[in-house]
């Protein structure tokens, strides 16, 4: 059940298919670029001044796995 307690915006809902398609191309290009760079050992992604990590969460990093999984 959804509560439409604020206007999500019809245009904003419709456009996401286009945004996703363009994003898909960008991400594909990025992964190709990354592969080529790593083949030539040019990967400088691990900048030591970077304080923000990757978006992906690694569940194996949890120290005490959840006990509520019943």
């Amino acid at each position: 059940m959804h509560f439409l307690y604020f206007d999500a915006g019809l245009g904003a809902m419709l456009i996401q298919a286009i945004v996703a398609a363009v994003a898909g191309i960008a991400l594909f290009y990025k992964s190709i670029k990354f592969k080529i760079r790593s083949i030539f050992g040019l990967d400088k992604n691990a900048s030591e001044n970077e304080v923000f990590d990757d978006i992906n969460i690694d569940d194996s990093k949890i120290e005490n796995p959840s006990k509520d999984d019943n």
Partner: peptide
């Protein structure tokens, strides 16, 4: 607003938006 039900997007598409 109800017309927003027409809008559809796969989960993969959502991940693309968010990752990008």
């Amino acid at each position: 607003v109800k017309a927003s039900k027409q809008a559809s997007l796969s989960k993969k598409g959502l991940f693309n938006i968010i990752d990008n």
